[in-house]
């Protein structure tokens, strides 16, 4: 437990170093962003010392660290609101999207990986491997556009861009920020179905990426386990191949999959940037993209910090989940 805490803290410190460093090397002058390019030299220098840019680097870092620990990432230039407030507003949208995508990736990816492994070299394996290769290599924005064209514009099976139809805006009180969850709690079924209709296509497209990855990893982990002696022993006991594969082999694969799933979730947050842009999904990805294109340094660094913190949290979570799936890990702590 102590070791886990130490690693979390040191990773966090490293993260702050990186964001601080990026803030210094990026060719955006934060002073200029405040005073504008018509300001006099005197004004420029006054603002420069006001925000502490004339101090020695270690002192600047220290002040940055203290501010970050207080949740102060400065104000966003575009929204002129505290960055933290902006992040808390947009993050639930991304969380909802990536959780749904992860669910799709795990629920379909693991069984497909298992089937590919047990049918190694046969047509099932070829189909699944080809399918995941496409998931790997297709650009998300292209898939997103095609998806919108086919399923929204032509077939009308799903709702269009955004999280909700305009007519449903502001009906459901924000509790978790996940509209599907909030609307269910509020008993607004119409809102729920509408938000699900909006969610399903971007989540499926984002989830396809993680499905491809999870399926490939599951396949290779399964192939490793199916070669083990204990598989022969379970067969010698007279167990059905179904039980041998889905209980014994997969039970051991979970141990390795925990990390894969945690990291997949992290990469979904990144993948959300493109998906959210295509689907006008008002989440972290879209927010980061807009900030980046408008040289809104505070917002970009704040968002980077948030993604980093989520990564650290996921790693911590997977460390905590390990002992649940692996009895050998229970003793080490």
């Amino acid at each position: 437990m102590c070791r886990l805490l130490f690693s979390v803290l040191s990773t966090f410190l490293g993260l702050t170093c990186v964001t601080f460093f990026i803030g210094r090397v990026i060719p955006i002058d934060p002073v200029l962003a405040i005073v504008g390019d018509k300001a006099s030299m005197a004004t420029y220098n006054r603002v420069r010392s006001e925000i502490g840019l004339d101090l020695p680097i270690p002192v600047q870092y220290w002040r940055y660290l203290i501010k970050v620990l207080h949740g102060d990432f400065g104000n966003s230039v575009i929204t002129s609101q505290p960055v933290l407030q902006d992040l808390l507003r947009v993050f639930p949208a991304t969380l909802e999207l990536s959780l749904m995508a992860l669910m799709i990736g795990v629920i379909f990816g693991i069984p497909l990986g298992v089937i590919a492994a047990t049918h190694r070299g046969r047509w099932q394996d070829q189909v699944i491997r080809f399918g995941s290769l496409i998931g790997y290599s297709m650009p998300v924005f292209w898939l997103g556009l095609i998806g919108l064209l086919v399923f929204y514009a032509k077939l009308g099976w799903v709702e269009g861009p955004g999280r909700l139809d305009v007519s449903y805006d502001d009906i459901v009180p924000v509790v978790t920020g996940l509209i599907t969850v909030d609307s269910l709690f509020a008993g607004e079924h119409e809102v729920f179905w509408n938000s699900l209709g909006h969610l399903v296509l971007p989540a499926a497209i984002l989830g396809y990426l993680s499905l491809a990855y999870v399926a490939r990893m599951t396949r290779s982990f399964m192939l490793g386990q199916l070669k083990q002696e204990y598989i022969l022993a379970t067969l010698a006991k007279g167990l059905s191949p179904f039980r041998v594969v889905w209980v014994h082999a997969l039970g051991n694969v979970w141990v390795q999959l925990v990390t894969v799933i945690a990291l997949t979730f992290g990469s979904l947050l990144e993948g959300a940037v493109l998906t959210e842009t295509v689907f006008a999904w008002p989440g972290l990805g879209l927010y980061m993209k807009n900030s980046l294109f408008n040289a809104d340094l505070n917002a970009v660094l704040g968002g980077t910090m948030l993604v980093g913190v989520v990564y650290i949290g996921l790693n911590m979570l997977s460390d905590l989940i390990y002992p649940l799936v692996d009895p050998r890990a229970r003793e080490r702590r």
């Binding site: 002696e229 204990y230 379970t234 167990l239 051991n252 141990v255 692996d326 009895p327």
Partner: peptide
């Protein structure tokens, strides 16, 4: 064969370290 295995004929393997499922009691 599956009906015979365990019930009529059983097999003991070399090394219990590898022949028992590590995640099941």
């Amino acid at each position: 064969f599956r009906r015979l295995r365990g019930k009529k004929v059983a097999m003991i393997l070399q090394d219990p370290k590898y022949s028992l499922d590590p995640v099941m009691s």
